[in-house]
Design a protein around this nucleic acid. Structure first.
Lengths: 227, 227
DNA sequence: ATGTTTTTATAAATTAATAATAATTGAATT
DNA sequence: AATTCAATTATTATTAATTTATAAAAACAT
């Protein structure tokens, strides 16, 4: 959460439910966005990063499960809490829901007080989760400095140590051009003597793993991470 | 309990009872999952860790006793409360039930008010139980920091002290990569001087005891517990 | 005396650096 | 504009260096 306001995105194809929930949440001080279809949900989520997504399972066109896995595939929404809304009896969907990375699930009909306490619990959990990780999000990359992992679109990519350090340096200020000299100093250290092509080779390996366009060459100066 | 919401799993082969209980529990704010057979119960429990399992004894195929011992064999459900549902007269099962690790047992026909107060009592007990033990659950491992014991799938595994401390450190943040230096400092202490291969050897012994894939090597950095 | 911990030596695996060649870029010149 | 050319970067294969795994034995402790 960037600010104190919790952003909730509610997705349901029934306008009544949307309004009902919006009313109840806004009354409690939540910032609410609504979407009445899966595609709209993805658009809204892109516009503004939600802290919590309340997601109806049954929707025409693109159902909740799909929306959830789309979101989960993108590193940007890794720390977003996703809860499904589901009618009491469709419990076969429960399996699919958790498979796909849902955090909780709330059965309709929804009772306001229950919903609110549930949301509070979820947000507490989120704060804990976020507080003790150390992750950089750049575009659709997530660089976990603690787990030494790179995560792109739901895929885990392994980097060797120097590769990781190099990427992490570039990611420390996306868009900034890092001069070769600076890269030498910060990744290798002042005293280490390595040849002139060494950085190029590491850059090449990174590009191999994370895509050609992520790192841009600034000729005569160095490299930068494209924002 | 990760959140404030208590997760209850109800297992019974009679749909009426299932619905009746679900209704009564959800009304009180419990999060309810249902299963109509033993195998389904295990599946549901895997999906989401229940705080409480209400388990019918008499079921076709796999009966409640079996389900209970399956659950109890797995460290993950060690702190889950299991209560049997049983018709008044089949009291021979009582013995088997407690043998197999049940915490309580509730006779049918079930009266809602009684059921709810019983559940509250059980949850209180659970909180106490969890509060005064110091056990870490990771995957299907249970690391008892008090008894210096490791428990995997119903089996007790003996670890030497250094092995235990090493595993316990890794388990303090599953997924995090612990640098060798950090391991040295935290398991051996700043001043102790030991050779470079010592950690490797302990890691090897741990892998021997808890399986090869539990601990992952991150070359150039250290080790982590796979999540 | 038995289990635990550390060391040693060697093998295996992974990562990093280099060197040689190719490709690209951007300015200078036509 | 098009061409040339020198400087810079990309690429690939190869070699070197580093790091970890393993087994066995020695040292330590209970």
């Amino acid at each position: 959460m960037q600010t104190d306001v919790v952003h909730v995105l509610i997705v349901d194809d029934e306008p009544d439910i949307l309004e009902f929930m919006r009313y109840n949440l806004e009354k409690e001080g939540y910032s609410v966005q609504v979407a009445s279809s899966g595609t709209e949900a993805l658009k809204r989520a892109k516009e503004r990063l939600p802290d919590l997504v309340l997601l109806d399972v049954m929707m025409p066109e693109m159902d909740g499960i799909e929306v959830c896995s789309e979101l989960r595939a993108n590193a940007r929404y890794q720390s977003t809490v996703i809860a499904f809304l589901t009618a009491r009896n469709e419990d076969f969907t429960q399996i699919a829901g958790f498979d796909v990375g849902a955090d909780d699930y709330i059965t309709k009909p929804i009772k306001p007080r229950l919903l609110l306490s549930r949301i509070k619990a979820l947000m507490r959990r989120k704060v804990e989760k976020v507080a003790d990780t150390n992750v950089r999000y750049i575009g659709d990359m997530a660089i976990d400095q603690e787990k030494y992992q790179l995560h792109i679109n739901g895929e885990n990519i392994n980097l060797a140590r120097k590769e990781f350090e190099l990427l992490n340096l570039l990611a420390s200020k996306p868009g900034k051009v890092f001069a070769r000299q600076e890269i030498f100093n910060k990744v290798w250290g002042f005293d280490v003597v390595i040849g002139d092509r060494t950085i190029d080779v590491h850059i090449r390996k990174l590009r191999e793993k994370i895509g050609l366009n992520a790192i841009r060459t600034i000729k005569g100066i160095g490299y930068k991470l494209d924002v």
